[in-house]
Amino acid sequence: MIKAESIDFYYGEYHALKNISMQMEPNTVTALIGPSGCGKSTFLRLFNRMNDLIEGTRLEGKCWVDGVDIYDKSVDVDELRKRVGMVFQKPTPFPKSIFENVAYGLRVNGIKDKKFIAQRVEESLRGAALWDEVKDKLKKSAYELSGGQQQRLCIARSLAISPSVLLMDEPASALDPISTSKIEELIYSLKEHYTIVIVTHNMQQASRVSDKTGFFMLGELIEYNDTKKIFLNPAMEETQNYITGRFG
């Protein structure tokens, strides 16, 4: 379970997130939608402290992951990021073999047991519905895969370290429709084991894969409810306008 409470976030002077409180349940997919620059990606990146990497940012409020205040001084950021996996907009395979890409998270965690690594790699690739396509070329460079395969590889890479939360920042926006539908099926099947938060620009995608949807605009959380409710009967006019494509 992840929770945000009264979050205010600043890039220098710019007030990017305004007093946001939100709670995501385990084993659900929560979609964050909204026009570009509304702060949904910034919000997502709070939960694995990716925003720490950007200089001149400031956070007020609190974030919890599995009951831990993740911005507390006692938190080891690297440990947090092992618990909270992230998949990025563009596939970002490392300049390594397919096998080594998936094994990366295990290796940086100091795991040396070869048998365990091989087993974990296979499980993760199966989990990401990629195993059958790559099982014969695990030693090949990850760059030889197609864009969709690369993205599933990145998902497998995140799964390998057994996180409890999976953050996805527009994971299908750079992919073709077939690859996209594969990723969506994957997201659907993954929610059994993970808490998933997905940022997307694609309304249909949000309605297809998510259980709950939050609508962001200009740094504010306008509406957060069951996906069905948001898409069929939104409470706010802005939400209505956005999902029907009248602006944004």
């Binding site: 990716m50 092992k82 992230m86 990366y104 940086v108």
Partner: peptide, 18 residues
């Protein structure tokens, strides 16, 4: 080195040195 690659590594729990 693309920022995305760096972030992907950090997001997997790798340290700055790793």
């Amino acid at each position: 080195t693309p920022r995305a690659l760096r972030e992907a590594s950090l997001a997997l729990g790798a340290t700055h040195w790793q």
